[in-house]
């Protein structure tokens, strides 16, 4: 099968790869680029374990061809940590016990990040709806909701709320 050359900015770094047009973005990230934090939990775009940010929007990377990301910016869980310091979303999941087996966690955090970037002060209801494309089998969601609200509080500028 013929291959195409694409360049995708992944976590701020331009990555040039040659691949078959049918290769899913999730597979490129995992197999091609070794970014195995993005997971695959289904084959029907239901579970959201593969969620990454494409140009700032939460996208299920199992339902996007890697060639479609040519020239676009992709952020994955591996890009959340800056200079070994955890992003508040990661910190929130840790503090509020928002993960158990950890398999949904990367996708869940990327969806949460997309939410917080467009809505810095979500209500619990808004968090639940924003995460409704992400399935979790371990947590029963409650601590995930708390984790996202924790991160929202931490991300707000000082004096407008802060950490509980």
């Amino acid at each position: 099968m013929f291959k195409r050359q694409v360049t995708i900015t992944v976590n701020g770094e331009a990555r040039a790869v040659e691949l078959e047009p049918r290769v899913l973005l999730a597979h490129l990230l995992r197999e091609g680029l070794g970014l195995t934090g993005t997971h695959i939990g289904c084959d029907t775009t239901s579970c959201g374990a593969c969620t990454v940010l494409v140009d700032g929007s939460a996208v299920k990377s199992c339902t996007m061809l890697a060639v479609q990301a040519d020239g676009h910016e992709v952020r994955t869980v591996e890009g959340l940590t800056r200079a070994s310091e955890l992003h508040p979303v990661q910190e929130g999941f840790q503090e509020e016990h928002g993960l158990q087996c950890g398999f949904c966690t990367p996708g869940m955090m990327m969806s949460a990040l997309a939410l917080l970037e467009r809505n810095p002060e979500p209500t619990e209801e808004e968090v639940r709806w924003a995460l409704s494309g992400n399935l979790c089998r371990c947590t029963g969601y409650q601590n995930i909701v708390k984790a996202v609200l924790w991160a929202a509080a931490k991300l707000r500028p000082a004096g407008t709320g802060g950490v509980r």
């Binding site: 995992r30 970014l35 195995t36 934090g37 993005t38 997971h39 695959i40 994955t76 869980v77 591996e78 959340l80 940590t81 955890l86 990661q90 999941f93 840790q94 993960l99 950890g102 398999f103 966690t105 990367p106 955090m109």
Partner: peptide
């Protein structure tokens, strides 16, 4: 959690 929130767990795949 330290590895899982960083996407650094090691699952079989």
């Amino acid at each position: 959690d330290a590895r899982f929130v960083r996407g650094r767990g090691t699952y079989v795949d």
